[in-house]
């Protein structure tokens, strides 16, 4: 069976166009509304003042210091969350695949569990834990990374699991072992390089989740981008929407980058010619 899709019929092309238009409108319209709102003055005229302010570090520092702090917190949270998630999840998943495949279902269940628990319920459980976290490590908002690792777990797990399923981890590791590699070398030099796409997927999805997280930060009284936007929105709605838009664009860019990287990887292979077949 060929992997090349059959050419679309005229009716198919029309249906495809209509669907693209409907869904495009569905996604683009709110963005357009945000952009429109951030560039409109009360008299109906247009201005880019809000955007100029948003991209002016001095103005932001002077007028919206809490927003800058929120952005910094969120960026730090993304870094720590991704790092912690990879350190915890990646070796565990590789180890489970290679050495204890019988517990794979258990790890899968545990990893997907946060998806079924509403954030508000999660906070009820996290609140007493964070009382201890605060006691030992202080009140830094960056400590939310511990909670965020839990909420990004289902997305990261799926991405890494897909990557691990795409390669024959067992055979590759056995081949490496037979050539003299230690388990650490197998992971670092054989498995991880072949999971680059999956690791990037897991990381980008985690970044998107962390940048958009509000509930846990708000209920645990920590400051991140979303809680600050919410706060700023009460006194300067245009700036709040502009910053939201900017971070949405960043998230879209990350996802675009992700699919671009995956696409390039898929296309990079040159197939052997028939004369090479033997």
């Amino acid at each position: 069976m060929s992997g090349v899709p059959p050419p679309a019929t005229p009716a198919g092309r029309v249906a495809r166009g209509v669907l693209l238009l409907v869904f495009g409108t569905f996604f683009v319209l709110p963005l357009y509304a945000m952009l429109d709102f951030t560039t409109r003055l009360p008299d109906g005229s247009r201005t880019a003042a809000t955007w100029r302010q948003a991209f002016s570090p001095s103005v932001m520092n002077d007028q919206y210091p809490e927003l800058v702090q929120g952005i910094v917190n969120s960026l730090l949270l993304t870094v720590f969350t991704v790092a912690l998630m990879l350190v915890l999840l990646l070796p565990t998943m590789i180890w489970v695949r290679l050495r204890v495949p019988r517990v794979r279902k258990v790890v899968q269940f545990v990893s997907l569990l946060p998806l079924t628990v509403p954030a508000i319920v999660l906070v009820v459980g996290l609140a007493p834990v964070y009382a201890w976290v605060t006691y030992f490590f202080g009140e830094s908002s960056v400590l939310l990374a511990f909670a965020y690792v839990v909420i990004v777990l289902p997305y990261s797990y799926r991405a890494l699991d897909a990557g691990l399923s795409a390669i024959d981890v067992t055979t590759l590791s056995e081949a490496a072992r037979s050539l003299g590699a230690s388990w650490l070398t197998v992971m670092v030099r054989v498995v991880v390089p072949n999971l680059r796409g999956a690791i990037m997927s897991a990381a980008f999805l985690s970044v998107a989740v962390v940048l958009g997280e509000f509930t846990i930060a708000s209920l645990l009284s920590r400051d991140n981008l979303q809680t600050t936007i919410n706060l700023i929105g009460k006194r300067d709605a245009q700036m709040a929407v502009a910053v939201s838009f900017a971070f949405l664009a960043i998230a879209f860019f990350l996802l675009f980058l992700l699919s671009f990287v995956g696409g390039v990887r898929a296309l990079s292979g040159k197939q052997p010619s028939p004369e090479d077949a033997a």
Binding site: D168, L172, E174, A175, A176, S178, L179, S182
Partner: peptide, 15 residues
């Protein structure tokens, strides 16, 4: 990894 062996597998095993 400490045995003095070389092995070729049934499945393609090149990195």
């Amino acid at each position: 990894n400490k045995r003095d062996i070389g092995m070729v597998f049934q499945a393609y095993s090149l990195f």
